[in-house]
Write a protein that binds this DNA or RNA. Sequence first.
DNA 1: GAATATGTGGACACGTCGTACAGTTTACAT
DNA 2: ATGTAAACTGTACGACGTGTCCACATATTC
Lengths: 210, 210
Amino acid sequence: MSTYSPDLGADSIETGKRNPGRPRDDARRERILAAALEIAAEDPARVTLEQIANLAGVSRTTLYKWWDGPYDMVLEALMERTEWSLLHAEGTALERLHDQLIDLVGIMTDPATEGPVRLLASGAAADAETRSRFSKTWLGPRRRVAARIVREGIANGELREDIDVDAVIDTIFAPIYERAFFTGAPLSRELVDTLIAIVAPGISATPRQQ
Amino acid sequence: MSTYSPDLGADSIETGKRNPGRPRDDARRERILAAALEIAAEDPARVTLEQIANLAGVSRTTLYKWWDGPYDMVLEALMERTEWSLLHAEGTALERLHDQLIDLVGIMTDPATEGPVRLLASGAAADAETRSRFSKTWLGPRRRVAARIVREGIANGELREDIDVDAVIDTIFAPIYERAFFTGAPLSRELVDTLIAIVAPGISATPRQQ
DNA sequence: GAATATGTGGACACGTCGTACAGTTTACAT
DNA sequence: ATGTAAACTGTACGACGTGTCCACATATTC
C-alpha cells in the first residue's frame, strides 16, 4: 500500500498544522528500515516480519500498519540508501553511461546493498505485481537517467539517430544484473569497459574502425 | 540431492540386472513432473509439495524421496521440455546467434514455460546455492552453445579475434531475461533483430558502415 | 479532560515445511 | 509358496511465518 511515506503523521509543511493524535515516531521508522536492510543483506531467507520486528525492537503489529510486507520495507530502505547513484556526471554520452554502469556495479558489489537488491529481484521474477513495482521504483529512475543521456547523445550528434533507446539501455545494463542474479560471474570495472566497447560501434554516429 | 535421476531403480542397461525391490514407477514420475510444471505455469505462488502431490494424485512422501523440493522438480521438468532449444542451426555466426535468441524468446513467451523459468530465476536471485544450480543446469548449456557459435565465428574470420566471448553472450542474452523477469517489456522478433544490430558492428571483423 | 492516532502484546486459524513411522504394494530370488 | 527389498501410502507431529483481531498503553492536539 505505502510506497514512500515521506512525512506521514508529521507536520504538514504548507499549513503548519499537525494532525491530531500521536505522531509517527520517525526514529522507529528508521530503525525498522535499517533492520530490514541489514537482515536482507545478511540472509535473504531470514527476511521476515518477525525477524525485522525483533531486530528493530518493535512490535510486529506496527510493521503491518505501515508496510505491505518485508518486500515493501526493503524496497523503501534501499531506495533511500542508493539515491546517490542517480546523479549524472559530465562528459560524452558513452562516458556518462560508463559512469552509471560503474555505480550499478558498486551497488551490486557492496555487501550492504547486494543482498537487498537480490531479494527485490527475486520477488520481481516470481510475481507480476511485484515485478511492476520493482520496475517502476528501482529500474525506472535508473533507466530514465540513462535514456536522457542517450537522447542527449543523439541530439548532439555523438550517437546515431536511428537507435532503439530502450534496447541500447537493456544491452548495457542487463548483463550486470544477469551476472549478479543468475550466473554469479564477477563484476568489475573491466567488465564495464568491455560492455561499452562492444556496444559503442553499433550506436556511435561515427563508428571507430580498427 | 537428485539432479536428473535418469533411470534409478530401473534396469541397468550394461548388466541387464535389476535392483531388488519394487522398481520406480516411471509413469508416476512423469505425472509428478507434469503437475509441477503445470502449476508453475499457472501460478508460481501455488508451487508447493502439497499442491503438486494432489494434482499428480500422489503421496507427498513420494516427492520427498526423489526431490529436494518444488524447485528441483520444476527444474528437472523444464529441462526435459526445452531440450529442442539446444540444437543449433546453419548459417553465419550472427544468424545462428539470432536463431538461438529467437528460441529463448519462444520459451519466455510460451505460457507453459514462461512461469516455470520465472520461478527458477526467482530462486536463483534469492539464494546462492540455488543460483549456482540454475546457472549450471539452465544457463550453462545455452551459454555453451552460444560460446561455440562465437568461437567458430572467430575461427572463420567472421568475428573479431579480440572479443570477450562471455561478455558478448551476456550482451545479447541478458536483455531477454531482464525484460521477461524485471521490466515486463514485450519480447518479439523485432527485439532480437535490434539486439543483434546493436552488437554486430562491435564484434564483426569487418563492421558494416551506414 | 476529550478526542485521536500511534504503538504494544497476546491470541487465533491457516498453510507449508520437514520428518517420522507403520503399513501396503510390486517386483525379484530361492 | 515364501522371503526380501525397495517403492509408495496415509497420517501425524512440531516448527515457523502469515494475516487478522482485540484490548490496552502512550503521545499529542484541541
